[in-house]
Amino acid sequence: MPLQLAFSIVLLVRGHNEPGGGFIGGLVAACGIALHGIAFGIPAARRLLRVPPPMLIGTGLLIAALSGLPGLFQGQPFLTGLWGGSVPTLLAGQLKFGTPLLFDVGVYLVVAGIAVHLIFTMAEDQ
């Protein structure tokens, strides 16, 4: 389970130019949590997640929406990608920071939140 979460983060950050990205990362993360839920029961998975899934969806949407704003303030159209500096990392090569990464983080949270919410609701509704 921790391995899956770690892998999902790797998928998230290498997203922009390589296969991967927020959507896949979010799904992998949701799979990890669902696995935990199957193994130890849904209440345990909920405790593990700490925040309720709708909160994840809300935060993710907020981050994704806000990532469009910096472009707007620089006189560019909404959602224009702006890149900042980059740091080298072990696994993913260069990790570049910028609004597209922020957008992907938002997508990651939304997808993970929705998938987990779906699985929890359906699993508890027995």
């Binding site: 959507f23 929705i114 779906l118 609701t121 359906m122 509704d125």
Partner: peptide, 16 residues
């Protein structure tokens, strides 16, 4: 696919 995934999930819940 993502949209139909959401739709199908909702349809399943509704049908239940």
């Amino acid at each position: 696919i993502v949209i139909s995934f959401g739709m199908i999930a909702f349809t399943l819940a509704l049908t239940r």
